[in-house]
Computed example of a mutant assay.
Amino acid sequence: MVTKDEAVRSAQTFLQQVVYPDRADSIVMRPDTAIEFTYGWTVRFDFKEHLETSDPSYAPFTSVVVVPHDGSAADFAPTSMPAAEYMALHASGNWPSRKGQ
């Protein structure tokens, strides 16, 4: 099981090293909004520029990172559904497989 602090660190590493290495100093983690689900944690983040100006053009396209409890790599939740629904589908085993793609 991944703790909340570990999930926040994992999400931050994912964002700073994989997704936004050119904006690593701009990433602001929001550990107060982390939510634990059976499948793992959702952790929100924002960009410093968005927080300082409230200008939506500075906001991240998606602000939810998923950190699975099983140690799998952090990734973004899909934007096509609420994060809680995505997490419930994973926990139930009903998330579509990529087999045959």
Rank of each mutant, 00 (worst) to 15 (best):
A77E: 07
E52P: 05
I27Q: 14
D32W: 11
S80R: 14
Y86Q: 08
M81K: 14
A74Q: 09
F76K: 09
A59D: 05
M1K: 12
G93P: 04
A59L: 08
H69V: 01
M87I: 03
R44I: 01
Y58G: 03
E36R: 15
M87A: 14
P56D: 05
A74S: 13
Y86G: 00
T79L: 07
V67Q: 07
R23F: 09
D25G: 14
G93L: 03
W95T: 00
T79N: 09
N94V: 00
D46R: 12
L51V: 04
M29G: 06
T79Y: 08
D46T: 09
V64W: 08
V64I: 13
T3M: 13
T53Y: 06
T79P: 08
A77K: 08
S92W: 02
R98G: 08
K4I: 12
S54P: 01
Y39E: 03
R9M: 08
G71M: 12
A84V: 02
F45G: 01
V65N: 10
G93Y: 05
A83Q: 07
T3A: 09
V43M: 09
A74T: 06
A24C: 09
A73E: 15
L89D: 00
E52D: 12
A7C: 11
Y86S: 01
V64F: 05
P31K: 09
T62M: 07
T53K: 14
H90Y: 00
D22S: 13
F45W: 03
P56F: 01
V28W: 13
P96T: 11
I35S: 08
V43Y: 08
L15G: 02
V64R: 10
V67P: 10
A83L: 05
V2W: 06
Y86E: 06
A34S: 08
A11K: 11
K48A: 12
V8P: 13
D46K: 07
P21S: 08
V18H: 12
F47T: 07
T53P: 10
M1A: 13
Q17T: 15
E49Y: 06
T13P: 04
M87S: 04
F61Y: 11
T42C: 06
V8W: 10
L15N: 05
I35R: 15
V28S: 11
A7E: 13
G93F: 00
A24Q: 14
P31M: 03
V66S: 03
